[in-house]
C-alpha cells in the first residue's frame, strides 16, 4: 500500500464540496457554537466579535484569542473555521497550528497587508477568501484559495451587496463561457487573472472551487435568494446572534437554504422568528466603512 498525502488541492477543495447546501454561522462563544450545531449549521466561524459589533465598535479587528478558538473547537464536532487578516500569514500559521478546519482570509478583519494576500499553497489547512467579482475570485484561487465566498457587506443585515456580488461573479462566468477561445487572452488581461485559469472557467462554465455567499444575509428568504441566484451555500454572520431569537432563526435559515426552491417551506420557516437584526442600509454607509472594498 502507498503512503498518505495531506493538504492536497483535492482534499482542501473537497471539504468545501461537502459543505454545499449548508449554512456556516458566525459564533463568538462555545455556547453559541453549540446552538449553531443544534440548529443544523454545517460549520461554524469562530470569531471574537460579529461584523455588526466590529462595525459599531471600530478599531483594529484581528484574529481571535486561541483560547476562544480552542473552546469552540471543544464544543462542537462540525468543522470550525476562523478568520485571519488579509495578508497576515502568521495569524494563518497560528490558526493552522490550533487545528481549525478552514481559514477565512477575511476583509471583515483589518487588513495586515494592503498589497499582498497570503500565499495559501504552503498550508495544509484550506482557505476561503472573499470576492466581489470574477477577477478577484480567480486571483484568490491563483494564490491557493480552496473556496470562494462572495463578500456582500458584512454586519449590515442589508442583502443588496451580497446580491450584487453573487450576480456579478456568476454573470461574468456566463459572459466568459460565451466567448470564443481567441478572446480568452484579452479576457485574462481584463480579469487580471492567469490565462490557464480563465480558459478553465470559460470551458467548464463554473469556478474550479465551491462558491458560497456572505455579507448581509439576515432572514430565511435572504438565504433562499442567494441559493436561487446560484450560490452553493450561505455564510450568516451577525444575522443570527444579533436577532431576537437566535435558536429559531438559525434553524429557519438552515431549513430555507435546503428548501430554497419551495416558497411554502420558506414561508413556514419565516414564521414567528421575532426581531431580525436591526440592520444598516449599505447606501447610508460612507465609503471608508465599506468592508467589501478591502481586498483586491
Amino acid at each position: 500500500m502507498t503512503e498518505k498525502t495531506q493538504g492536497t488541492s483535492r482534499v482542501k477543495r473537497g471539504l468545501a464540496d461537502m459543505l454545499k447546501g449548508g449554512v456556516i454561522m458566525d459564533v463568538v462563544t462555545a455556547e453559541q457554537a453549540r446552538i449553531a450545531e443544534d440548529a443544523g449549521a454545517v460549520a461554524v466561524m469562530a470569531l471574537e466579535r460579529v461584523p455588526a459589533d466590529i462595525r459599531a465598535q471600530g478599531g483594529v479587528a484581528r484574529m481571535s484569542d486561541p483560547d476562544l478558538i480552542d473552546a469552540i473547537r471543544a464544543a462542537v464536532s462540525i468543522p470550525v473555521m476562523a478568520k485571519a487578516r488579509i495578508g497576515h500569514f502568521v495569524e494563518a500559521q497560528v490558526l493552522q497550528s490550533l487545528g481549525v478546519d478552514y481559514i477565512d482570509e477575511s476583509e471583515v478583519l483589518s487588513p495586515a497587508d494592503y498589497v499582498n494576500h497570503i500565499d495559501k499553497w504552503p498550508f495544509t489547512v484550506p482557505f476561503v477568501c472573499g470576492a466581489t467579482n470574477l477577477g478577484e475570485a480567480l486571483r484568490r484561487i491563483t494564490e491557493g484559495a480552496a473556496m470562494i465566498r462572495s463578500k456582500g457587506e458584512a454586519g449590515t443585515g442589508d442583502v443588496s451587496e451580497a446580491t450584487k456580488h453573487i450576480r456579478t461573479i456568476l454573470g461574468e462566468i456566463r459572459a466568459l463561457s460565451a466567448q470564443s477561445p481567441d478572446e480568452w487572452y484579452v479576457a485574462a488581461k481584463e480579469l487580471q487573472a492567469p490565462y490557464e485559469l480563465v480558459a478553465e472557467v470559460a470551458q467548464s462554465g463554473t469556478l474550479p472551487v465551491v462558491l458560497f455567499t456572505a455579507g448581509g444575509v439576515a432572514t430565511p428568504a435572504d438565504a433562499a435568494l442567494m441559493m436561487q441566484l446560484g450560490a452553493d451555500g450561505v455564510f450568516v454572520g451577525s444575522g443570527i446572534f444579533k436577532s431576537g431569537n437566535p435558536e429559531a432563526r438559525a434553524a429557519a435559515i438552515v431549513k430555507a437554504t435546503a428548501a430554497f426552491t419551495d416558497p411554502a417551506a420558506i414561508a413556514d420557516a419565516s414564521r414567528g422568528l421575532g426581531e431580525a437584526m436591526v440592520g444598516i442600509n449599505v447606501a447610508d454607509l460612507p465609503t471608508p466603512h465599506r468592508l467589501a472594498e478591502r481586498g483586491w
Binding site: Q6, V11, D101
Partner: peptide, 17 residues
C-alpha cells in the same frame, strides 16, 4: 465513528487495494 482522523489538516489521499 465520525471524524476519526482529526482535523481537516489530517484529511488525506491514498491508494487502496
Amino acid at each position: 465513528r465520525r471524524n476519526a482522523f482529526g482535523t481537516q489538516s489530517d484529511s488525506f489521499e491514498t491508494d487502496l487495494h
